[in-house]
């Protein structure tokens, strides 16, 4: 595996170091167990570091969500993953080789975010072409069925609605029967019903042992449909794990209460409290020991309209990503329709 100077290898296999002569082959084998691996990957556009050192490994068969607000670096990461862009430094590997090799071998199918319809071809014609470029495509009827396009097969792609078109993009990604399915904001234009159908198809496809990586800024979607969530913010991975792990990592519970008149105790000093926020006279405490926090509040006689709730993924997401005031405001706009 090639490493770019200056970026430390996080996954240098110890077992590989003493077999220098067969090193490359071994490294390839080791990485081959992963569908995707990013090692110290950096990509800048001008002064903006869109991807600012990402290390990520996705074993085969996993369904992974890349969660982040708009502009967090998700699409850039996906462009690098597919080999559409070259990283400034670091290495991207798909199935142990360069992305282009996996793409040419027909192991990757992808749904890009910005694709607009080509004109004057039908859904069937488009999918027939895409399938023909892969060595082991899905039968046409199956990709049409999974994407919910059976009724629309004879329609021209440029005459479809936004939601229908989104399903065509999904079908294009599926048509080749790829081992790795990459979906950039797959449900952006879908209504509730279509969204449900989409995720059930996506899970059906993942259940066949395929690897799925999708990006989203909808927290619920990541929570419901991924085995693992990778939270990206400002081009970095700020959390990586199951939804439970991520919720736990930022303090397990929220304790809310109305601040009594003349309450002076410093909220963050209370037992268990990780962070505190006061909005319109109501305190919101993030705590990793809600019992201790509540007992302390009771001792201070501060219990007014007390609520104790498990932290949601949203809370975790907010805590992980609002490092700057701007980012926080921007993110609220992006996420509200997903909540």
């Amino acid at each position: 595996m090639t490493q770019t100077a200056g970026t430390p290898a996080t996954d240098t296999p110890d077992r590989g170091t003493h077999t220098a002569s067969t090193g490359p082959a071994h490294a390839t084998d080791a990485a081959a167990t992963d569908a995707v691996s990013f090692t110290g990957v950096v990509k800048a556009f001008g002064a903006v570091r869109a991807v600012d050192v990402i290390d990520l490994r996705v074993p085969r068969g996993e369904a992974v969500a890349l969660l982040g607000r708009n502009g967090a670096g998700k699409s850039t990461a996906i462009g690098l993953l597919l080999g559409l862009d070259e990283p400034d430094s670091g290495t991207v590997r798909l199935f142990g080789g360069p992305p282009a090799r996996a793409v040419t071998a027909g192991r990757v199918g992808a749904m890009l975010q910005d694709g607009r319809p080509i004109r004057r071809v039908t859904v069937r014609e488009l999918l027939t072409f895409v399938a023909s470029t892969y060595p082991h495509p899905l039968p046409l009827a199956e990709s049409l069925g999974l994407a919910g396009l059976t009724e629309l097969a004879g329609r021209r792609v440029d005459k479809l609605s936004g939601g229908q078109l989104q399903r065509v993009r999904f079908a294009v990604a599926l048509a080749g029967g790829p081992e790795l399915l990459v979906l950039d904001e797959p449900t952006a234009a879908l209504d509730v019903e279509a969204r449900r159908a989409f995720w059930s198809s996506m899970r059906a496809y993942a259940d066949r042992g395929n690897t799925v990586l999708f990006s989203t800024h909808y927290l619920e979607e990541a929570d419901d449909n991924a085995d693992r969530i990778v939270v990206i913010d400002h081009g970095r991975i700020v959390a990586d794990g199951t939804s439970e792990q991520i919720k736990g990592s930022v303090g397990g519970h929220l304790v809310c209460f109305d601040l009594p008149e003349g309450f002076t105790a410093e909220l963050t000093r209370l037992p268990g409290v990780v962070s505190a926020e006061v909005r319109a006279g109501r305190a919101r405490l993030r705590t990793d020991d809600s019992d201790a926090t509540v007992v302390a509040l009771a001792g201070l006689d501060a219990i007014r309209r007390l609520e104790v709730a498990p932290a949601t993924l949203e809370d975790a997401f907010l805590a992980l990503t609002h490092t700057t005031r701007d980012a926080k405001d921007e993110m609220k706009d992006d996420t509200k329709d997903g909540l």
Partner: peptide, 17 residues
């Protein structure tokens, strides 16, 4: 036109060289 539609990008991620 295909370039502006993103179709060339989509073609680049098909196995066709």
């Amino acid at each position: 036109e295909d370039k502006s539609l993103g179709w060339l990008r989509q073609l680049r991620i098909t196995p066709m060289p």
